[in-house]
Simulated assay, not measured.
Amino acid sequence: MKSLLATAGVLALLMSAAACGAADTDITKINTPEVMAETSVDGDTRTTADARVATYRLASGEHEASDLIGASVHNPAGEEIATVADIWLGANGSAPMIVVRDGGVAGVGGKLRTVAYSAASIAADPDTSGDEPDVIVRLTDETLETLPEFEQVDENDFRLASEMIGTTVGVSFSGELARINDLIVTNTGEARYAIISPDLVSINQIVVDANAITVARGDTGGGLVLELDAQTFASAPEYPRQ
C-alpha cells in the first residue's frame, strides 16, 4: 500500500559528508554489467553506453519506503495495534527507527512513537499478493505504551522518508532537476537506493545510490544535490513503474 505522507522537503542529512565522494557500491555492477549498444546517428554507427537494458529488482530484505509507510503494526499475538507513520533514517550516528502511529484516524492524530528496527521483524503480509504486498511489522519485546514518543526538532530536515519522497534534486553534472519518487530501504532501516525520475517530464525511473544525494550548503540554502558523474547517471539501471 502506498500511503505517502506529506512530501514536502526531502533527502538526507543522514546521508551526509561521506556521500560527497564516490559511492562505495556501484549499483550497476550489482544488477547487470553495462550494456553497450550500437546506434545509427546521421548514417554513422556509434557505440553508446546509455542504452539502459538493466532492470533493478528488489532483493530479499529490501522494501520500497512507500510500501512500509502505512503498513500494519502487529503485536506478537497477531493483533493490529498501530500503523507505520514514517521511517526515521537516522543522522549523526543515530540508528534508523520505525515511527508508528498509536491511534488516530486515516493517518491523522494519535501518538507517534518509535521502535528500533532491531526490535521488529518485517515480512510480506501472507494475506496479500501481487507486486506491492502490505508489510507487517511485529513488535518483539516492547509493548506499544513503553515505546518512546517521537518528536521532530526540525521539520523538513530530510531525516524522514516521507520528506524525501516527491522532492526534486539537482543533478550535479548537468544542473538539471530530477525527482525522488521513492527510497529502497533494508530491514535494518538503511536507505540503500533512491528511485528517481531522471528529469521532471520523464515517465521512466532509475535507481541510484542514496548516499549520492546530499544537502547543498552555501548562500542558496539547503537544496538537494545528486552527486554523480554523467556516465554513472546514464548507466543507472531502470526501475519499472508498478
Rank of each mutant, 00 (worst) to 15 (best):
D86N: 14
E80I: 02
T25P: 01
A116L: 06
I27N: 05
T28A: 02
G104C: 08
T55P: 00
A95R: 06
T114E: 11
D50R: 05
K2L: 07
A59M: 12
T39G: 03
A95S: 13
G61I: 13
A65E: 00
R113P: 01
P96N: 04
A95H: 12
A17S: 10
L89D: 04
A95G: 04
A51Q: 09
R52W: 02
V105A: 09
G93Q: 01
R46P: 07
P33H: 01
A19I: 01
A82G: 08
V105K: 12
A51S: 03
T48N: 08
T55M: 07
L4Y: 06
R46H: 12
K29H: 05
D26V: 02
A49V: 13
R57A: 08
V115H: 12
M97F: 10
G61C: 12
I27D: 05
M97E: 14
G107A: 04
R113E: 03
M97R: 14
E38D: 13
Y56I: 05
T83N: 11
M97S: 07
R52H: 01
A77F: 13
V99P: 00
E79N: 05
P33I: 03
L5C: 08
A17Y: 15
N31S: 14
A23V: 02
I81H: 05
G110Y: 01
S40D: 09
D42S: 14
T55V: 15
L68N: 04
K111V: 05
I30V: 06
L58Q: 12
G90M: 02
T39F: 06
M15I: 07
A37T: 09
G107M: 00
T47E: 12
T39I: 13
L5F: 04
G103P: 04
A77H: 09
H74D: 05
A91Y: 03
I69A: 05
T47V: 10
L4E: 11
L5P: 06
V115T: 09
